[in-house]
Design a protein around this nucleic acid. Structure first.
Length: 366
DNA sequence: ATTCTGTCTCAAGACGAA
DNA sequence: CCCTCTTGAGACAGAAT
DNA sequence: TTAGTCC
């Protein structure tokens, strides 16, 4: 669920922290992506009609592979270096939320059974989408595919979004691309939305800059985290009667959650019993992530033979499509290995934020 | 009369031929 | 032992100020 | 731009 209403709150109160960018301006950039979210979308939409999906000869779903394969090629061709981050075990505080989602899926499964019995096509379509879930098998398939393509895979110990943000903070990647606003709360310095939306949709990439946002809101990062908890996050309930607007007002007025809790009218606002805001805060501020300085992210050459084995022989892909794709990856790789620096100095690449970032020593690194 | 919250519903890819 | 893992936006009703 | 296919 991310943070409720945060996009609108930022659009209204910190517009300078968000700016539109062209897809092309991310040439040569390393970008961290939450894999589960992508896989989920592919399972819902790729090749689905009714309960039918794309499958291999054994009848196993391949929608996630088809989607992941073509999307990753698209990114590589644009000179973007993607890092896919996979979820580990969710934190205990999220269990409640996950239980709700589980029961919602159960409901949808029942609804689907009824619709199938009656034969209502629209309902079958609708409910079957709601029963979709990402399994460990889907994740393993995609990890294998990405490694064969030469794209780095990171396995997060816990939340993928938190791991993405950590990579960004450590300047191992330039930005986190996601549709989930949690990324900002986890402290990603740069956060991109709509990176994957095709240009035909005419939606520009929206880049969020956390330091700019904090400056404009006149909040510290700790205060921003308290703000997000008040708005409503996955880790604990929000307080009835407090939404984004009042949350911002309260944080600005009192400065911290402790002070807010001391000062607000407890008659009007009922604080839940044993409200675990401190633990939620800790999960955002110090999430469980791996931070091995040694491991360098590497974009290797694709393993053509391995890809043909996996995609064509095991999963029924068209062989021409795969061999053509391998060529695309190779040429994209030589082009982008030339790097951002050469292209910038030859004026082959136009970006509008050069001046702002040039002072950073790590400008060309990520 | 607004402003705000809570709840419910929907929609979510990508390629290439025509 | 079970099972484990995505979400934002918009419309609308109704409460609070 | 749009309807069909990808497996």
């Amino acid at each position: 669920m991310g943070i409720k209403g945060l996009t609108k709150l930022l659009a209204d109160n910190a517009p300078r922290g968000m700016k539109e960018q062209k897809f092309e301006s991310y040439f040569g950039r390393k970008i961290a992506i939450d894999a589960s979210m992508s896989i989920y979308q592919f399972l819902i939409v790729v090749g689905r009609s009714g309960t039918e999906m794309l499958t291999n000869e054994a009848g196993e779903t391949t929608s996630h592979l088809v989607g992941m394969f073509s999307r990753t090629i698209r990114l590589l061709e644009a000179g973007i270096k993607p890092v896919y981050v996979f979820d580990g075990k969710p934190p205990d505080l999220k269990k409640q939320e996950l239980a709700k989602r589980y029961s919602r899926r159960e409901d949808a499964t029942d609804d689907l059974a009824k619709a199938t019995e009656i034969g209502n096509k629209e309902d079958i379509e609708k409910f079957s989408k709601r029963t979709v879930k990402v399994t460990p098998q889907h994740n393993d398939d995609c990890k294998k595919l990405l490694r064969l393509m030469g794209v780095p895979v990171v396995e997060a110990p816990s939340e993928a979004e938190a791991q993405c943000a950590a990579l960004c903070k450590a300047e191992k990647v330039y930005a986190v691309a996601s549709e989930d606003m949690d990324s900002l709360t986890f402290g990603a310095s740069r956060f991109l939305r709509h990176l994957m939306d095709p240009s035909s949709k005419k939606i520009p990439v929206m880049e969020f800059d956390i330091s700019q946002i904090l400056e404009e809101l006149e909040l510290s990062m700790d205060q921003f985290i308290d703000l997000c908890i008040l708005c409503g996050c996955d880790y604990c309930d929000s307080i009835r009667g407090i939404g984004p607007q009042t949350a911002l007002k309260l944080v600005r007025q009192h400065g911290s959650m402790e002070s807010i809790l001391e000062n607000i009218n407890k008659e009007r606002y009922q604080i839940p019993d044993d409200w675990p805001y401190e633990e939620a805060r800790r999960l955002f501020k110090e999430p469980l992530v791996t931070d091995d300085e040694q491991t360098e992210l590497k974009w290797a050459a694709p393993d053509e033979e391995g890809l043909i084995n996996f995609l064509v022989k095991e999963n029924g892909f068209n062989i021409d499509r795969v061999t053509k794709a391998v060529e695309k990856i190779k040429t994209a790789k030589t082009k982008s290995s030339q790097g951002r620096y050469e292209l910038l100095s030859k004026n082959l690449l136009m970006v509008n934020d050069v001046g702002k970032n040039c002072h950073s020593l790590n400008f060309f690194k990520s």
